[in-house]
Nucleic acid binder design. Structure first.
Lengths: 206, 206
DNA sequence: CTAATAATATGACCTAGTAATATTATAATT
DNA sequence: AATTATAATATTACTAGGTCATATTATTAG
């Protein structure tokens, strides 16, 4: 009893690892890996509550698909609370563990910059906004889990160039100050600069 | 002929979008959405070369699973090519469509900032590096698809504070210049500032 | 009217399973 | 040695979400 039980428990443990490192492995592959029948694998999975490959695959896909926005695609980092075009705006970001630096619980600078930058680009009234330059200062570290409120204010507007001041706070105080120079283009201008996708014509903004 | 062909082509176009925005939709759901039979959907998919849900789901999962680091946690934006601690470093970023601003083919400023920032934090010799401030300038827009080379150079080092100059180029020329003030902490110091995760002690760096 | 295309249908097959039940092998206890 | 428990394997029926090939029925343009 003991021996068999041991090999089984051992297999369970290894199986968990195996599936964790490659969630796309099928029962058949697991069966040949562990040199047991496919039925054993299925019984095992059921015991330890691991769903079938397709479920696992879909879970991975849905989770990552949902998170894919976090930094990369990220039309907007943080949630827009208020936008008064060419005047001011507010955005809120709930920081999460993934935004931390390695083993520290400090949020990466570029995450905060991204929130500031997207807010700066959003509050200007333009079809297309491009950041030209910025002077920024991280005045205090932000801890993972803290909620960051960004306040934007358009302080100067001179033709296409607008200056946006951003300050960001957590409940503990000021964490970021920055001045962004944003260039505002309309679709016409953007078209001339050949920066629009050829397939698209009009539609949204930012 | 023309009318039907048109509705079909129209359906094909919408179907592509539909599947792009939700790759997990089944033929059945598509059929009821477009109010055609499931067979039509399958014929359509075959014509335009879109695989079945499970294949799509798996593709999403595999792609994002592999890239999980890039997207989400984003320890490092861009690929490190060379690091000479406290002296200089190089990183390369292949820009993709998701990094673009809305309908333009211009890469978002904060994506470039993230590449610069992560390089600046990587080349300093410290257990934990925190960006304190930065003056940056986006000298030319980067088009989606372009490859961005970032060069970092430590120009000043005064106690914990180091200054890192970053310039970034595409094949078309300079696109970004920046000066980063980076604060370097060792684990001891980081511990005192209570910015380490309680569960972890040592391990990596940056 | 006819030929072409679109839409729908049918039937056989596939993968990677679930679920329930039965059988065989092995090992531990009494 | 016989009993009992567990592990492993097998069997059968069923499922979702398809593929693939081959019809059949509308619609419509020439």
């Amino acid at each position: 009893m003991t021996e068999k039980t041991l090999t089984m428990l051992n297999r369970h443990r290894k199986m968990k690892e195996k599936i964790e490192e490659n969630p796309f492995i099928t029962d058949e592959e697991l069966a040949s890996f562990f040199e047991v029948s496919i039925h054993t694998i299925r019984a095992d999975r059921k015991k330890i509550g691991i769903p079938e490959v397709r479920k696992r695959t879909k879970d991975v896909a849905v989770t990552l698909f949902g998170q894919a926005k976090t930094l990369n695609a990220a039309e907007q980092i943080g949630e827009l609370l208020e936008v008064d075009l060419d005047r001011e705006g507010l955005s809120l970001l709930d920081t999460t563990e993934e935004m931390g630096i390695g083993q520290t619980k400090i949020v990466r600078g570029h995450v905060l910059f991204a929130q500031a930058n997207s807010l700066a680009n959003t509050i200007v009234d333009a079809d297309v906004a491009l950041t030209g330059a910025a002077q920024i200062r991280f005045t205090a570290p932000v801890r993972v889990g803290e909620r960051v409120l960004a306040k934007a204010r358009v302080v100067k507007s001179k033709g296409r160039k607008k200056e946006v001041e951003i300050i960001m706070k957590t409940k503990r105080g000021l964490v970021f100050q920055g001045m962004f120079e944003v260039y505002c283009l309309d679709f016409n201008m953007a078209g001339k600069l050949q920066i629009l996708k050829s397939t698209e014509l009009q539609g949204g903004e930012e």
